[in-house]
């Protein structure tokens, strides 16, 4: 049964990489059920992330947000800060897609805080970029300018010409 769970997860990932998002979702749901059966929180967390990602490409952003929130909750339970940062980043982008800029800003700020805490300059740069765009969308150009400056500073520091 445990191996079956892993096989479902691998099938879900393979369909995802092939662009078969509905099939990927079906397999990841099976994987999720087995992870729950075993009380395997790490596998459950991975399934939520994979389900959130697949729903993005079906345009079901609201469903993705719910899965990413479950990822976030489990990452905190598992005390995995890198995964927590990733979940906040995904939620920030998903709420931008949903045009809910207030929530998007909130999650990008959380991502920024964790990236700073972890000394992750690449993550911090990405958070500043995303946050700046969310501020522009919400009409707060003053804060957007501060973020763009931060993004430029970090891009120069890490040698990211693009």
């Amino acid at each position: 049964r445990a191996a079956q769970g892993r096989a479902y997860g691998n099938l879900g990932n393979t369909h995802y990489l092939l662009g078969n998002f509905s099939e990927a979702i079906a397999f990841h749901k099976e994987r999720l059920a087995i992870a729950k059966e075993f009380g395997d929180k790490a596998a459950e967390r991975r399934a939520y992330s994979n389900l959130g990602n697949a729903h993005i490409f079906l345009g079901k952003f609201d469903v993705s947000a719910e899965y990413y929130k479950k990822t976030l909750q489990l990452s905190r339970q598992l005390k995995d800060q890198a995964v927590e940062a990733q979940a906040c980043y995904s939620l920030g982008n998903t709420y931008t897609l949903l045009r809910d800029y207030e929530r998007a800003i909130d999650f990008h700020l959380k991502h920024l805080c964790i990236a700073q805490e972890l000394g992750d300059r690449v993550g911090e740069g990405r958070a500043a970029w995303s946050l700046g765009n969310a501020y522009v969308s919400s009409g707060d150009h003053g804060k957007a300018l501060g973020c763009a400056r931060k993004h430029l500073e970090i891009s120069q520091e890490i040698g990211d010409k693009n």
Binding site: R6, A47, N50, F57, G59, S90
Partner: peptide
């Protein structure tokens, strides 16, 4: 899919490009 093609925000487009290849492995 039409909705996905017209995404205007650069940082979101970049995130989605990365996401296409992002899987949580077993």
């Amino acid at each position: 899919f039409q909705r996905l093609r017209i995404i205007q925000v650069d940082s979101v487009r970049r995130w989605m490009d990365d996401l296409k290849l992002m899987t949580e492995c077993e």
